[in-house]
Each structure stands twice: as structure tokens, then as C-alpha cells.
Amino acid sequence: MSNALILAEATGTWPYVAASWALVLGGMGAYALVTVVRGRRLSKKVPSEKRRWS
């Protein structure tokens, strides 16, 4: 009985764990994507001597 309860609790937390990790890693990926895309779009408008890192 108590074992089954612990098991149910353990499986019950996995969705929350998965959601946290997915949201954080997904959020990072999405932010990285948006930043890189914006950078590419803006880079075309700026002469390369002003982009001192490239």
C-alpha cells in the first residue's frame, strides 16, 4: 500500500520535472534563435568595419 503510494507520487512528479527542463532548455534555445536571427538581419544593414567581432 505505502509502496504503491510512493510509486504513484514518484511518477506524479515526472511531468513537472519534464515540463521544467523543457521550458528552460526550450526557452534558452528560442531566445538564442531569436537573437541570432535578429543579428543576421541587422548585420546586413551595417558595414562590416562596424562589426568589429567578425
Binding site: W21, L25, M28, G29, A32, L33, V36, S43, K44, S54
Partner: peptide, 20 residues
């Protein structure tokens, strides 16, 4: 999710980007 981020982060080495 890390893989999708990966294709983004590694492919930004082109001449017209914020990557270096």
C-alpha cells in the same frame, strides 16, 4: 530541446551574423 538550440548556436559562424 538542446538539439534544436544546437543547430542554432553552432551555425552562426557566417560572415553576416553576431557570431565569431
Amino acid at each position: 530541446t538542446t538539439e534544436t538550440a544546437g543547430s542554432v548556436e553552432t551555425s552562426d559562424s557566417g560572415p553576416t551574423s553576431t557570431g565569431s
